[in-house]
C-alpha cells in the first residue's frame, strides 16, 4: 500500500468536486471547494515524507538526522492560512447574493440572471 496516501489525496479531491457539481447551497459549495483544496495538503505532505524521518527542526537534534522535506511543509502552512481568508471572501460573496436575490441555490441564481 505504498501509494495509499496519494489515493487518499485523489479521493478527497474528487469527493470535493462531486460536492461542488451537485451543490444546492452556496455555503455548501464553498465548503466543498475547501475540501478539494485540502487534498493538495495531503498530496504535498505525502510527497515530502521520508521513511522514519523526524520534523525538519534541529533544535536539540543533531544536524544530519533524517528529516522530512521542509519545502512542502512551508507551502502547506502558508496555503492553509491563505485559504481561510479566501474562503471568507467567498462566503461574503454568497451572503451578498442572498441579500440581493434572496436565494442560496446556485441554479436559481442562473435563472434570475437570465
Amino acid at each position: 500500500m505504498s501509494v495509499f496516501p496519494y489515493l487518499v489525496a485523489g479521493w478527497i479531491c474528487v469527493i470535493g468536486l462531486y460536492g461542488i457539481v451537485t451543490s444546492k447551497h452556496l455555503i455548501h459549495l464553498a465548503l466543498c471547494l475547501t475540501v478539494t483544496q485540502s487534498s493538495t495538503y495531503v498530496l504535498l505532505l505525502a510527497v515530502g515524507y521520508v521513511q522514519g524521518g523526524g520534523p525538519p527542526i534541529f533544535k536539540g537534534v543533531k544536524l544530519g538526522t533524517t528529516a522530512v522535506d521542509p519545502v512542502v511543509q512551508s507551502l502547506t502552512l502558508t496555503d492553509i492560512v491563505v485559504s481561510v481568508t479566501v474562503l471568507a471572501l467567498i462566503l461574503a460573496l454568497a451572503l451578498d447574493v442572498h441579500d440581493e436575490l434572496d436565494t442560496m441555490d446556485p441554479d436559481r441564481i442562473a435563472e434570475l440572471q437570465g
Binding site: 505504498s2 495509499f4 515524507y49 521520508v50 522514519g52 525538519p56 544536524l63 522530512v68 522535506d69 521542509p70
Partner: peptide, 19 residues
C-alpha cells in the same frame, strides 16, 4: 513509493539551513 522522497531540495535544505 510513499516515504521514499527523492529530493534533492528537502535533503539539501535540511543540511545547509542551520549552518
Amino acid at each position: 513509493d510513499f516515504g521514499h522522497y527523492r529530493g534533492p531540495y528537502g535533503y539539501l535544505l535540511n543540511r545547509v539551513a542551520l549552518p
